[in-house]
């Protein structure tokens, strides 16, 4: 479903600030795979997400989605195939527009936008049934401005908007990191539910090791622009945090240095 082959990216090449962000990344996702990604700050997780979404293009290497080479496709064209939820709860929705209008925008992602009304009775019914899944009573507040919602509600809405058109790939970029623990749990459960329902091929970046272990069928660990550890479907169910720590020490010969990564 998703293939990254030989991806390299260097920022500020040939200047004193040169930084190798991604170093020969190879990653294959089968349809329905749910891969969680962990790694300390600066490991290249977000850069990799941006490569897949098209916000950045690689220096070398190819990105293939569903058999199509999309390496040079700009972000707005690629997002036909990709649903994305950002870390910032404010980033995924338009605050001065209503819930219904936001959902309508997400709904018209797949086809070329036309001069026809973004919402009609049939669509509205579909929006309502989709919103019911969130259990936040948003289906009865279709005309409320999204800016009036709380961070957790907005993130839940973003998640729904990113998934309900069944994208080929779902990218979750630390999408629970900015929420308080109870809200984060709500979103985590919702993620599980929506991904399972849609059988979505998913990549999730997280700083929360426990979350990385609990969710998904595969796990990868990144460090210094490389994928240093890949846990497959067979081993994932028995994985624990100490396992991950000792694996890291074995590979890198040093203790894991990110306090944030430890605070699972």
């Amino acid at each position: 479903m998703l293939k990254l082959e030989g991806i390299n990216k260097i920022f500020n090449e040939a200047t004193p600030d040169e930084k190798i962000a991604l170093d020969n990344i190879n990653l294959h996702l089968a349809p329905g795979d749910f891969v969680t990604i962990i790694g300390s700050n600066g490991a290249g997780k977000s850069t990799m997400m941006n490569m897949i979404s098209g916000a950045l293009t690689p220096d070398f290497g190819t990105v293939t989605i569903d058999g199509k080479d999309v390496t040079r496709l700009p972000e707005y064209k690629r997002s036909h195939y990709i649903g994305r939820v950002f870390q910032d709860p404010m980033a995924g929705t338009a605050p001065s527009m209503t819930i219904e209008e936001n959902v309508a925008i997400a709904y018209s992602r797949n086809a070329k936008r036309q001069l026809r009304s973004g919402s009609n009775r049939e669509r509205r019914d579909f929006f309502r049934t989709s919103l019911e899944k969130l259990h936040l009573n948003l289906e009865n507040r279709l005309n409320a401005k999204v800016g009036m919602l709380s961070g957790g509600e907005r993130q839940a809405l973003s998640l729904l908007m990113a998934t309900f058109t069944k994208p080929a790939i779902l990218l979750l970029d630390e999408h629970t990191a900015a929420l308080d623990p109870s809200r984060a749990e709500l979103i985590t459960n919702l993620t599980k539910q929506l991904v399972e329902e849609g059988n979505l091929t998913t990549l999730m970046v997280t700083h929360n090791m426990q979350q990385a272990i609990d969710l998904g069928n595969r796990l990868i660990m990144m460090d210094k622009g490389q994928i240093i550890l890949s846990i497959d479907e067979a081993k994932k169910p028995t994985l624990t945090i100490p396992d991950l720590m000792s694996e890291f020490e074995k590979i890198r010969g040093e203790k894991m240095n990110s306090d944030r990564a430890l605070l699972g």
Partner: peptide, 27 residues
């Protein structure tokens, strides 16, 4: 009417949150 069409909604979202509307395949 126009501001409620699919194109109109996308234009309004462009003024509101560019990053969001790009991630929903709008140029």
């Amino acid at each position: 009417w126009f501001l409620k069409t699919e194109v109109g909604l996308a234009i309004r979202a462009t003024g509101d949150n560019k990053r969001m509307i790009r991630s929903f395949s709008a140029n």
